[in-house]
Each structure stands twice: as C-alpha cells, then as structure tokens.
C-alpha cells in the first residue's frame, strides 16, 4: 500500500486548514497591540492545536490541551493582566525593541523543530482508522503505566516536593501576624 501526498483525503485537508488557523492566530498573538486581545488570540491558537490533536485521534492529549493550556493558562494570563492593572486598551510601545532578535530566535526554533520532526518521522505512516488509535487514552495509559512507570512516579514525588517547597517559601504563620499587629 503506497501513501502519497498528491491526492489528499478530507482529513488531510482539514488538518492543513486548521494548521493555517493556528499559524495565523499565533502571528496575531505577537502582533496585536492590545494585551487582552493577544491573550484571546492565544486561546484560539491553543484551541486549534487541540483540534489538530483530535484529528490525529489523540483525544486524551486534546482534552489535556483544552483543560490546561486553553483553560488554566489563558485564564491565568487574564487574571494576571487584571491583577497587575496592566493597560487594557491598545498599547503602542508593546515590545518593539526586541522584535528582530525575537523573530530570529522564533524562526530558528521553528526551523529546528520542523527539521527534527520531519527527519524523525518522514518514513512513518499513521493510519487514523487503525484498530487501536495511537493517541487514545488507552494507548497513552499503557505507555505511561507500563513503560514509564518509574519516571511517572518520581514526577509525582517531584510535584510533592514542589508543593511543599512553595509552602515553605511563602508561609507566614498566623501567629506571626498577631505578633506583628
């Protein structure tokens, strides 16, 4: 069975289109003059990536993407903007100084990633209609809990350490406040 790029399936067309949406919204994130708008465009960007995951049958990853990136992180951004009383309206001087270096670094990173992925998977064919979808929760779970069980468990320990550490760093006991008062 040969696979070609010349007669695209509907799935492939959809994938490319959503990809263009991702790219466009990503560009808008860094070019709009309004911080809140940038954050909202980021939401679109993240969301469209989730759609791409779904198209590749990676449903678990897609939901994680929505929950964490689109959900938690964007909301965190918006709260951050609100709490720091950053200007809500258009800001002219927004990040002009480092435009060119940033562009170079961005393009460089993108170029490297594209090279890596293309080189790594150029001979791999993925069939979205396979028996057990590769990105399914089951496949991912099997991977995680069978082959990566040790790093996974250590990660949980790491998170525990981070949690305790955060408390240690930020704690100011009630008794102390009484003492201050």
């Amino acid at each position: 069975m040969s696979h070609g790029y010349l007669s695209p399936t509907g799935l492939e067309i959809a994938f490319v289109l959503i990809g263009l949406v991702t790219l466009g919204s990503g560009l808008l994130v860094v070019t709009v003059k309004n911080l809140v708008h940038a954050a909202l465009w980021l939401l679109v960007c993240m969301g469209s990536i989730a759609v791409e995951y779904l198209l590749l049958t990676a449903e678990l990853l897609a939901w994680i993407q929505v929950l964490i990136y689109a959900g938690a992180i964007i909301v965190l951004f918006l709260f951050g903007l609100m709490l720091t009383r950053a200007p809500i309206g258009p800001t002219e001087e927004l990040n002009v100084r480092h435009r060119w270096p940033a562009l170079i670094v961005g393009l460089g990173a993108a170029g490297t990633l594209v090279t890596v992925i293309v080189q790594a998977y150029q001979h791999t064919w993925f069939d979205p209609r396979g028996a057990v979808p590769l990105g399914s929760g089951e496949a991912l779970g099997t991977q995680l809990f069978k082959y990566w069980v040790l790093p996974f468990e250590v990660l949980s320990v790491l998170l525990l350490a981070a949690l305790v550490g955060a408390i240690v760093l930020s704690r100011r006991g009630r008794d102390t406040e009484e003492a201050e008062a």
């Binding site: 100011r172 006991g173 008794d175």
Partner: peptide
C-alpha cells in the same frame, strides 16, 4: 520563615 522580611519584628518573634 522564608517569607518574612529579614530583620523584621515578625522574624524576631
């Protein structure tokens, strides 16, 4: 206490 201001009353306490 990591978060108390060095030398403050809270820290002394």
């Amino acid at each position: 206490q990591g978060a108390s201001v060095p030398g403050s009353a809270a820290e002394r306490e």
